[in-house]
């Protein structure tokens, strides 16, 4: 089982969390009428072997969405943060 550091609640068991989505997706603007762009946003995924950013939800805890930087090969979690956080910035330096 993974232990995920919720930005609000601290280190909690994976069973309290629900995987939500790829954490790098940006929804195309509604004025964008490219079917491909919207299709790719909803369906197209690029499974990665290594580090990727994911969205999770602390569904059995505080209910918040959070960003998780996880290695799909080793399951190591390198960083977590609120959805608006830049995980490249160390946690203590974030405003």
């Amino acid at each position: 089982m993974l232990h995920i550091a919720c930005p609000w609640c601290g280190l909690r068991a994976q069973s309290e969390f629900t995987y939500a989505n790829d954490g790098t997706l940006i929804r195309p603007d509604l004025s964008n009428d490219s079917i491909d762009d919207h299709y790719n946003y909803v369906y197209a995924r690029d499974p990665r072997r290594g580090i990727q950013d994911e969205m999770w939800r602390h569904s059995a805890g505080c209910g918040q969405f959070l960003k998780v930087r996880r290695d799909t090969l080793t399951h190591e979690i390198h960083a977590t943060g609120a959805p608006q956080d830049d995980l490249d910035v160390p946690k203590d330096d974030r405003s």
Partner: peptide, 10 residues
């Protein structure tokens, strides 16, 4: 206090 699971129940 905490919100969590007991026997998989919220």
């Amino acid at each position: 206090c905490a919100q969590s699971l007991i026997g998989k129940i919220n």
